[in-house]
Simulated scan of single mutants.
Amino acid sequence: MLKLSRRLQTIAGLVPQHSRVADIGSDHGLLPVYLLQTGRSDFAVAGELNEGPLQAAVRQIEAAGLTGRIAARRGNGLAVVEPGEVDCVTIAGMGGALMAAILSEGMAAGKLEGVTTLVLQPNVGEDLVRRWLLQQGWYLAAERLVEEDGKWYEVLLAVRIADAEACSTMLYNPTFLPLDRDEEEKRRLLLHMGPWLLRQPSNVLRRKWQSEADKLRKICARMGRSDSAEAAEKQREMEREIETIEEVLGCLQTDKRSFS
């Protein structure tokens, strides 16, 4: 059986049992092979745009003896699946803007027909993915934060449910954050930092955002050596963001309410 990285293992753990999965941008096909080997999935599509990784996925699938149960297909985004063919889509390792675009294009083409679960791991722009889910009527059911090789990865589980709008309204309720900020800013923070991650604070979450604040401080220090008005304005914006991060982390240490 394949051994996955912690990141891919976390993604696999959010795929519902006996799903028919489309792994978009599958690279070497590790995730679909693992899902079939563990019995978590009954059928999978490994979609890949580039020929090199696609052939690597084909070899991986053949070596695992899963040729008849995993279809390796070349294509852009969700173009590799037919409407109703799968009920779960996984997309990992790309930017949030690209991920949202793939989902939008797939939805417009009817490729999300029959899909009830999305497991998404954007490398950057996580807020863009959360915003897309919110706008398109998906409910963000869970979030995981994984630290691996000095990097942090957020994994988002979204589902189709009848009362998604009401549940999302509760999830992104700005009153959850006890900060002296207006409601719009609090919602921005929930989208930016993750509503479930903030409701279930961990040491990994704190390390991630302390690291982000440290990066901003270093940038501010460099900008402080510039005489331009533009640099001064950007420095002030970053200083405000650092202050906000510190406030959020401070309230998480003292206010560990769970969502219900």
Rank of each mutant, 00 (worst) to 15 (best):
Q55H: 13
M238G: 14
V21K: 03
L14S: 06
S228K: 09
G125C: 01
L8K: 00
Q9Y: 04
L179M: 07
Q136N: 13
E148R: 04
K234R: 12
L14M: 13
V81T: 15
G52C: 06
E48Q: 01
Q235C: 13
V204F: 05
L66Q: 09
A97R: 13
L133A: 02
C167L: 09
L31Q: 02
V248A: 01
D149T: 07
T10C: 14
V119D: 02
R240Y: 07
G114Q: 09
V45K: 06
E230Q: 03
K151Y: 05
T169P: 15
D180N: 08
Q210S: 13
E243L: 12
L120W: 04
E185S: 12
Q210P: 05
K256Y: 09
E212I: 11
H192M: 07
V129I: 05
Q235L: 13
W152Q: 05
G47F: 00
A100R: 05
V248I: 02
Q200M: 10
Y139S: 15
Q60G: 15
A158K: 03
R199S: 07
R236A: 09
A101D: 14
C251G: 06
G250C: 00
T38K: 00
G13Y: 03
L112E: 01
P201S: 02
L35S: 02
K215L: 09
S104T: 15
E233N: 08
A64F: 06
A100K: 03
M107F: 10
C167T: 10
P53M: 00
D227S: 12
S5V: 04
K208R: 14
D182Y: 04
Q136G: 06
D87M: 11
C220S: 12
E62S: 14
L171W: 04
L54I: 00
K151D: 04
R236N: 04
W209R: 04
A63H: 12
F259K: 14
L179W: 03
N123D: 15
L140C: 07
Q235V: 09
E85T: 13
V146C: 11
P178R: 12
A71E: 14
L133T: 01
D27N: 00
G75I: 08
E154D: 12
A231W: 06
C220I: 09
L177W: 02
M193A: 03
L205A: 09
R225L: 15
I11A: 10
Q235F: 08
K218Y: 11
L179C: 07
I24Q: 00
E241M: 07
L14Q: 06
E239G: 06
K111Q: 13
R257Q: 08
G150E: 03
L156P: 00
D87G: 15
A12E: 01
V15F: 10
R131I: 05
L8E: 00
Q135H: 13
L49E: 10
E247P: 00
E82D: 05
D42Y: 11
L197A: 01
E237R: 12
L157W: 11
K111C: 11
E82T: 08
E62I: 08
